[in-house]
Design a binder for these strands. Structure first.
Lengths: 267, 267
DNA sequence: GCCCTCCTGG
DNA sequence: CCAGGAGGGC
């Protein structure tokens, strides 16, 4: 089985590229972020004709996540709302506010709980959006903790907007401490991973210089000035079973690409 | 010699298509309308590399005209300003106001005065913009009259936003009297032609159903719901010498086309 | 429908 | 640099 994650920066603009990629790389599950489209306008049929079931949770202009799966998914849920059933952990009003931004969708395939995330960008360290990101990550941890109780076999993936360590930045001296590489973000991520998740990519590749995102500005891709911020985190049993994990840089080389490129894990 | 006119609806957006068309149809002179770019940002070098001299008069967002010529042009002028030298015919303030909209550029090649026009659209009959169009056409007549005194051999071409008669409309019963086919616009055009110009296209093709513009809306091109509003008007000597005139529908069939297609006259 | 500008977001 | 959207023009 193969699961992939890809921030496509508008699924409508990138439709042809995503379809082409799936033809070349027919993963079982593709998790998309930044779809930027309400569910009613999601381009379902091109994916359905390719043999994928489509599960989407989107909004106008911003954010938006979706899961494409060759097999139907069970127990599809969107947002942090499932936390509400265990009331008391997080205030209902806070959850409702967080869920206005469509950043979370989950579903189950063969007892594997797949959680697809678009973590807030955070703008700049110390900004209001940075505080929002940190708050969101705290709620994410509670959400994943409660999901683990019912589904201990999990793949948590998506655009985390966090480079876990210096190997994941093209210029750690300059970028460490900046957004996506600040102490508090990395700590928040580590506290999530401490629930029992491990980085699929790092099971196979330990050296630095492998990136999943390159800024559109300053010709960053041509100069390989990247960040590794798109991740596939696995619970212990799945991590054991992983036999490969790779970043596919090809889509980032196309004309009019997304600024992110897909990451795939294979079991 | 071949002279062509083409409303490209943004020369930057259509750059590749215009270059491709010139490679296939290396006219001596190409008159462009709706370039929608200030002169400093006009994409000169692609045309220069093709062997064309570039003369442009543009503004931000709207209007804008340009002449591309394989030979350098003499006495290039922009706007109605040349009328100012014969003061008294039209008020200087009116001319200055009209010339804020970049709709006129002229130049001389081999004693042929080439005048490239983007006539105001006029919105709807009776509107303020309609009155502007009629006023503009009156000034145009005075402008052409004064140009004829110094350059009796003329080719006046461009997007006239007027269909001269019923043959130039796909549905004359419905469209006659509407904008681009109203009595006053047609009269104003006839008063201009009475200075001594004749329609190059009508020297060769007298039947209706030949169009140069199809609205982007309502799939007008697919259904051939067009208008013939792009014209090449010739002074008597040139009209005698014309050996062909045709509309090239090919560019209108491309993806992301202009809503107009080129018209060419050959001497 | 498809241009343009200007805005916000990344 | 590249998305989406709003607003105006044709």
């Amino acid at each position: 089985m193969k699961i992939a994650t890809w921030n496509v920066n508008s699924v409508r603009t990138r439709l042809e590229q995503v379809i082409d990629w799936l033809r070349q790389t027919p993963v079982d599950v593709l998790c998309l972020q930044e779809t930027k489209v309400v569910d009613a306008d999601f381009p379902r049929s091109p994916f359905e004709h390719l043999g994928y079931y489509v599960y989407a949770s989107g909004q106008k202009s911003y954010n938006g996540v979706a899961i494409l799966s060759q097999q139907p998914l069970q127990d599809v849920s969107t947002g942090f709302a499932p936390l509400l059933v265990e009331s008391g952990i997080v205030e209902a009003e806070l959850l409702a506010a967080l869920d206005e931004q469509k950043r979370v969708i989950a579903g189950t395939l063969d007892r594997v709980r797949i959680v697809n995330l678009y973590v807030p960008n955070g703008a700049a360290v110390g900004s209001e959006k940075y505080e929002y990101k940190l708050g969101w990550l705290k709620v994410l941890r509670e959400y994943l903790r409660s999901q683990l109780l019912v589904s201990p076999v999990m793949c948590v993936c998506g655009d985390f907007n966090i480079a876990p360590d210096e190997r994941d930045l093209h210029d750690p001296d300059k970028l460490t401490g900046q957004i996506m590489a600040s102490e508090l973000e990395r700590q928040a991520l580590q506290e999530i991973l401490a629930l029992g998740f491990a980085d699929a990519f790092r099971k196979f590749i330990t050296e630095g210089g492998h990136y999943s995102w390159w800024d559109y500005r300053t010709a960053a891709f041509r100069r390989n000035l990247g960040w590794r911020i798109d991740h596939l985190y696995l619970s212990p049993q799945l991590y054991q079973q992983a036999i490969a994990c790779w970043i596919d840089p090809a889509p980032r080389k196309l004309p009019k690409p997304s600024d992110h490129t897909p990451v795939v894990v294979e079991f």
